[in-house]
Design a protein around this nucleic acid. Structure first.
Lengths: 194, 194
DNA sequence: CGCGACGTTGATTTGCCTCAACGATTGTGG
DNA sequence: CCACAATCGTTGAGGCAAATCAACGTCGCG
C-alpha cells in the first residue's frame, strides 16, 4: 500500500474510523510528490479534484484580461486546495494552481467524495466544517480589502503567516495583497523605519 | 400552526420530507415580520441564529475603527443571512445586519440545526451546498477587488443584481463596492455618457 | 563568470478620497 | 395638502495613496 493509515488519521483528525473505513478512504486518495514550480491546475480545465497539502507550499492565482496575476490564496501543511468554485459545480477552472516549493499532496476526486459522504457521514461534517473556516477567512479578506490600507493589510498578512516570507516571493505577496511589487517594497522600507 | 408546510418545502426545495420531518423542521423555525430599518444583529452579540429571507431585503455591514460602514452583502428572497464567521463558532458578531425594506424572515438556531442534521442528514447536504455557493460568491468578490477598477465592479454589480437599484440606496452600493458615494456618482455619470 | 530573476529606488501619473457646497427627493407635522 | 426639514445624490477643487514607467543594484544559479 502506498498510503500509510496514519496519514489518513492525520488528514481527518478528530474522526475515529473503523479499519474498513480507513481502507475505503485510502482507496480514494492518490499521493503526489511534486517538485517546485509544478502546475497542478490550469484555467479552462474541468476541475474534478481537490488536494490535501501534506507538505510544501502552493498558491492559487487568477490571470486577468490584461495578463496580470492575482494570488487568491496560499496553501501550506494541513490545508485543502482547489479551484472550489469550479470544483463544486464540476465546471472549468478560472484559477491556476502551482507549487512554490516541492510538495507532497493527496488528491481526491469529487465523485470519490460523494461516495464517501454516503458511506461515512462524518466526512460530510468534516468537509462542511473545513468549508466554514475557508468561508470565514474569505470574509476577512473581503473586509480587509474594504476597510484597510495596503500597509495595514501587509501587517496583518505577516501576522497571520509569520514564516511565509522565507517561502514565498515578494511579488507573490504583492499579488495577494492587491498591490504592485514596487508598492510592497516601499511599504517594507517604511515599516523598517518605525 | 404559524408556519405553513408549503413554506418549509419552499425553503428546502429539492428535498422530499416525511410529514414527521416537516413537523420537526417547523418546530425549529421562528417566523419574523420586520419593518424597514430593523437591526436584527449587532456587533458584539453572540450569534446563535441564521435567517432565511422569504421576502424583503437586508444587508450585512461592518463598522471599521474610523466609524465607516462597509457592506459585506445584500440578502433578498431565498438567501440565508447571518454573521457566519461568528455563527459557526458561536462567538461574538463583528457584523451588523439590518432590514433595508420590510421583510419576512425565518430564524433557526445553530443548536436546532445540529439536531436536524442528525435527524435528517439531507439537511446537512443542503446547507453544505448553500455554503459552497456563498463561498464561490465570496471568491468572486475577492477576485473583483484584486483585478477590477471601481467602474468595472459597479458594472458587474448591476449586472449581477439587475433590479437592486430600486431597493437599495446608492450609499449602500458604494459601501459594498468599497468606494465613496461621490465616486459612485461620478461613475454613474460617466456610464450614462457612453 | 555572466545572465536572468528579483528587489529597490526615483519621477511622474492617475484613480479615488476628502472636504465643501448645492440641488433633488422624500418624509413629516401643522 | 402644503411647507419645511432631513436625507440623498451630484458637482467641483484639491490632495493623497498607489500605479506606472524607467533605471539600477544584488543575488543565485547554470
Amino acid at each position: 500500500m502506498d498510503i500509510e493509515k496514519s496519514i489518513i488519521l492525520e488528514i481527518f483528525k478528530d474522526i475515529t474510523f473503523s479499519d474498513k473505513e480507513v481502507d475505503l478512504i485510502e482507496s480514494k486518495l492518490k499521493k503526489l510528490e511534486l517538485k517546485k514550480g509544478t502546475t497542478i491546475l490550469q484555467a479552462e480545465e474541468i476541475v474534478n479534484s481537490q488536494y490535501y497539502v501534506y507538505d510544501g507550499c502552493l498558491r492559487t492565482y487568477f490571470i486577468d484580461k490584461s495578463g496580470k496575476e492575482h494570488t487568491l490564496q496560499f496553501a501550506i501543511n494541513d490545508w485543502w486546495i482547489s479551484d472550489y468554485t469550479a470544483f463544486f459545480t464540476a465546471s472549468k477552472a478560472i484559477m491556476h494552481i502551482e507549487t512554490i516549493q516541492k510538495a507532497t499532496l493527496y488528491r481526491i476526486s469529487r465523485t470519490s467524495m460523494e461516495d464517501l459522504f454516503i458511506e461515512i457521514p462524518q466526512l460530510e461534517t468534516f468537509f462542511r466544517k473545513k468549508m466554514e473556516k475557508a468561508f470565514a477567512s474569505f470574509q476577512n479578506r473581503i473586509l480587509a480589502s474594504l476597510a484597510q490600507s495596503a500597509k495595514e493589510r501587509y501587517l496583518s498578512f505577516i501576522n497571520t503567516y509569520p514564516n511565509i516570507e522565507q517561502t514565498v516571493k515578494n511579488y507573490h505577496i504583492a499579488s495577494y495583497l492587491g498591490i504592485t511589487t514596487e508598492s510592497l517594497s516601499r511599504i517594507r522600507k517604511e515599516i523598517s523605519l518605525d
